[in-house]
């Protein structure tokens, strides 16, 4: 697998795919995409890096603790779910706000999107945590 071609392509793809995964996450509310698919996208490019460059080589300089990602994602999702209660609304009530920025134009802020970010991190964390542990076990 680890030919020069795959290595080079992986290097080029890495930033692009990460950006794409973020754009999938952000676009999710109105266009195809969302936290789950964005997260899986992110996880797949990282796993490609793991496979192509080898787990040991990669973790030498890039070694995040994925369990923290899934924990913080779950925390973020729970907080956004509960945040509606102090505001006097139903559990899980989503807030929608439209704001106008000078260059970009109108932007829609939905609190549900924050929940989606939580989902994004949980998906990334879970997949890569499992992958890395299974991979390290050989």
């Amino acid at each position: 697998m680890t030919t020069l071609i795959t290595k080079t392509i992986t290097k080029i793809c890495l930033p692009l795919v990460i950006l794409f995964s973020i754009s999938l996450l952000l676009a999710g509310h109105n266009n195809p995409g969302g936290g789950f698919i964005g997260g899986v996208m992110f996880a797949s490019i990282i796993s490609l890096v793991y496979v192509v460059f080898g787990l040991r080589y990669t973790t030498a300089f890039f070694n995040p603790d994925w369990s923290r990602w899934l924990a913080s994602g779950l925390a973020l999702a729970s907080v956004t779910a509960f945040a509606a209660i102090p505001a006097g609304h139903n559990f899980f009530r989503s807030a929608v706000e439209f704001i106008h920025l000078p260059v970009i134009g109108e932007i829609e802020l939905v609190s549900a999107a924050l929940f989606d970010v939580g989902v994004y991190f949980v998906v990334i964390g879970t997949l890569l945590f499992i992958l890395k542990n299974v991979g390290e076990d050989t």
Partner: peptide, 24 residues
Amino acid sequence: AGGRNVVNVIIVDFRGYDTLGEIS
């Protein structure tokens, strides 16, 4: 829910409680 992607709106809003359970 203020979103046009129905699938995503179902996941994060209409059935948000389910999703929270699923990610747990």
